[in-house]
Each structure stands twice: as structure tokens, then as C-alpha cells.
């Protein structure tokens, strides 16, 4: 596998690598090169959604994305701190609804929901939002509290 230099923009910061293997997944670059462990590794086959990040504002499974594919994009992860309107709104909704237990799926859900709100805002119905979140698995909550959080986040959207 060849490796060449690469640049990546994550949470508004530019990162450069001198030798990045062509087959490296975005999930691994984030977690093990940049130390951004907020994005979780679950199945690595695109079935659980725990690794969801935003690529130019769109929900993307970082386990199925080659880092090379997103060199020119703006990547947003759960590690971005405070200040992003939609991410903060979703976090507040999750806290108010108590929508997490072990928390391992939480970064994926928060980012996926924030991505939906960024793209479509309140033009999405709650049912459409819940449909869109079906690719994110949670084993603890039974989704009831997550659905409550999604409703709260939607209501708070402009």
C-alpha cells in the first residue's frame, strides 16, 4: 500500500501527515493519528453508526470512508467542543431527555441528528428524523429517550 502526504480539516483545524496509507479509514485517522477518541469504533462495517461524523455537514460513516476521499472536506466530530449551534442544541436535548446510558452510541447519534438539523432544520418531520436515525444502533436505551431528545432538538431548531 502506498503512502503519501495528506492534509485534513477536522473541527476547523488543519492537520498534515507526511505518510498516510491510501487505505487508511477516516475513523482510524481521527482516533489514532489525531487522538480524537470521541468518535467511537463499533462494528467497522457500517452497521452501527457509532463512528458517524459530518463531512461538509453531511452524516458520514467514518469507518467506511477512506481518509484520502475527504482531504478537501470540512470534517466535524463530537470532539469539536462548544460553539456549533446544532451540535450544542442536540447535546442539550440529549441531556434534557436523559437520552444516554453507556454513551458509546451517543457521539454517533448526536452528530447524525445535528447533521440532519443542519441540512433540513424544522422542515423535517419528527418521523422523518427518526427514520433517518435507524442506521444508528443503541443497546441501552430502547430508543425511547433518544426519540424524546430528537423531538426536543427539532422543536428548538429555527
Amino acid at each position: 500500500m502506498t503512502a503519501a502526504s495528506a492534509d485534513l480539516t477536522v473541527n476547523g483545524r488543519r492537520a498534515s501527515f507526511t505518510a498516510l496509507p491510501d487505505d487508511e479509514r477516516l475513523l482510524d485517522t481521527l482516533r489514532w493519528r489525531l487522538g480524537l477518541k470521541g468518535t467511537k469504533e463499533g462494528c467497522r462495517t457500517g452497521d452501527c453508526g457509532a463512528c458517524t461524523v459530518l463531512v461538509d455537514g453531511r452524516s458520514t460513516l467514518s469507518c467506511l470512508t477512506l481518509t484520502r476521499e475527504v482531504e478537501d472536506a470540512a470534517i466535524t466530530t463530537i470532539d469539536l467542543g462548544a460553539g456549533d449551534r446544532e451540535v450544542d442544541r442536540v447535546r442539550a436535548a440529549f441531556a434534557a431527555a436523559g437520552a444516554l446510558q453507556c454513551g458509546y452510541c451517543t457521539p454517533g447519534f448526536v452528530i447524525a441528528l445535528a447533521g440532519l438539523l443542519k441540512e433540513r432544520g424544522r422542515s423535517l418531520s419528527l418521523d422523518e428524523i427518526l427514520d433517518s436515525l435507524q442506521g444508528n444502533l443503541c443497546r441501552c436505551t430502547g430508543y425511547a429517550a433518544i426519540a424524546r431528545a430528537a423531538a426536543l432538538a427539532r422543536e428548538a431548531a429555527p
Binding site: R31, W32, G35, L36, K37, G38, T39, K40, E41, T77, I78, D79, G81, R91, F94, A95, A96, A97, G98, L100, G103, Y104, T106, P107, V110, A145
Partner: peptide, 25 residues
């Protein structure tokens, strides 16, 4: 009283909770 008063909400929502898979020495 709701589950919202759990003290792990903030760290888990910020992506700061370190799980077994995140360990790095």
C-alpha cells in the same frame, strides 16, 4: 427527578469519555 441529573451526561456528550477501546499508553 429525571435521568438528566446523571453526572456522566456532560463528559459523554462532549466525546470525552474514555472507554476500553480508546485506551492508549
Amino acid at each position: 427527578m429525571s435521568a438528566a441529573t446523571r453526572s456522566d451526561l456532560a463528559v459523554k456528550l462532549a466525546g470525552g469519555a474514555i472507554y476500553g477501546t480508546d485506551l492508549d499508553l
